[in-house]
């Protein structure tokens, strides 16, 4: 395993704030060229994870390696290959958009003027307007443009969509994907907007209360989760005990049993169902949206 294979690796990355665990033993591998979505509810530790990776805060335990460098030792040469966009980032508000881009240019040896201009045009950013006068969406686009103009190897985005209206959000995502598509950029994006992540992420990780619940390819995740509906011959008064742990939030309504199967298999799962419900008349399994998957996971973890 090299930095080329995994631009981001975390081993037991932990961060405490005033004794409280904001991030607890995060183990993560982000494959090169992937678009990795780190999702989770507010306060799950997504921003802490990213800030630790970017050496904005220091980990309490564990380590992260970003493009092969220990995150605590990230230096100018590393930052020249990393793009970082965050909803919380302060910008030099007194600069105009044009000045901001020209100011950043000398910091990056790989700065591409043509790409920068293309993005400024594509995002319809007014060159002569101060950053302070831009709307939130425009500021995010300016930040993204300034982070893509040097074709970074790794683009890290922390909650970039929050507060953006749908049109701007689409424009933002489109610009990000277009710019990243040309090179070998790996994108790591945190969000609680599951629908958006689902539309373009190739990998997804779910973080809750500082712990990573799972991390896998999107296709594998959607393949193994199914909303299962079992229709029984006769109504039941209660569900059997000892149902498999992989059946999430099982519900009984007369002669219908519903649950989310977290490791659905075309052959194995129906057989398992018939072990518990011998009188099953019909079994149907429907794909689940990412949002439904996380709701099921969140409810299980809340128990």
């Amino acid at each position: 395993m090299t930095a080329t294979d995994y631009p981001i690796t975390c081993d037991g990355l932990s961060k405490k704030y005033r004794g409280a665990d904001a991030l607890e033993g995060l183990h993560l591998r982000v494959p090169a060229g992937s678009i990795y979505g780190l999702v989770g509810p507010n306060g799950a530790g997504k921003t802490t994870a990213i800030q630790t990776m970017m050496n904005i805060v220091r980990p309490t335990r564990g380590a992260a390696r970003i493009l092969g460098t220990d995150s605590r030792r990230l230096g100018p040469d590393d930052f020249a290959r990393i793009g970082y966009v965050s909803e919380n980032q302060q910008m030099p508000d007194w600069m105009t958009v044009g000045y901001f881009m020209n100011y950043l240019k000398p910091f990056y040896p790989t700065w591409d003027d043509a790409l920068a201009n293309e993005m400024l045009r594509g995002f319809d950013l007014p060159l002569n307007r101060n950053l302070s006068q831009l709307s939130r969406g425009m500021r995010m686009k300016a930040s993204l443009a300034s982070s893509l103009a040097y074709r970074p190897k790794l683009l890290i985005l922390d909650e970039p969509f929050s507060g953006l209206d749908p049109a701007v959000r689409d424009e933002f995502i489109e610009g990000m994907l277009e710019s990243a598509a040309g090179g070998d950029t790996t994108i790591f994006i945190s969000s609680h907007d599951l629908a958006e992540i689902e539309s373009f992420a190739s990998h997804v990780g779910y973080l809750e209360r500082g712990r990573l619940q799972f991390s896998e390819e999107m296709s594998s995740l959607t393949a193994r989760f199914r909303e299962v509906v079992v229709t029984l011959e006769a109504p039941l008064t209660e569900l059997p005990r000892q149902l498999p742990a992989t059946w999430l939030r099982p519900q009984l309504a007369a002669s219908t049993v519903r649950f989310a199967a977290s490791d659905f298999d075309e052959e194995r799962t129906p057989a398992e169902i018939r072990q518990f419900f011998a009188a099953a008349r019909d079994i149907s399994a429907a794909p689940m949206a990412l949002r439904e998957i996380f709701v099921a996971l969140a409810r299980r973890n809340a128990k």
Binding site: V57, F79, Y84, Q90, F107
Partner: peptide, 9 residues
């Protein structure tokens, strides 16, 4: 943690 320059080279 929020200044833009700390994640620039």
């Amino acid at each position: 943690h929020r200044q833009f320059w700390i994640t620039r080279p």
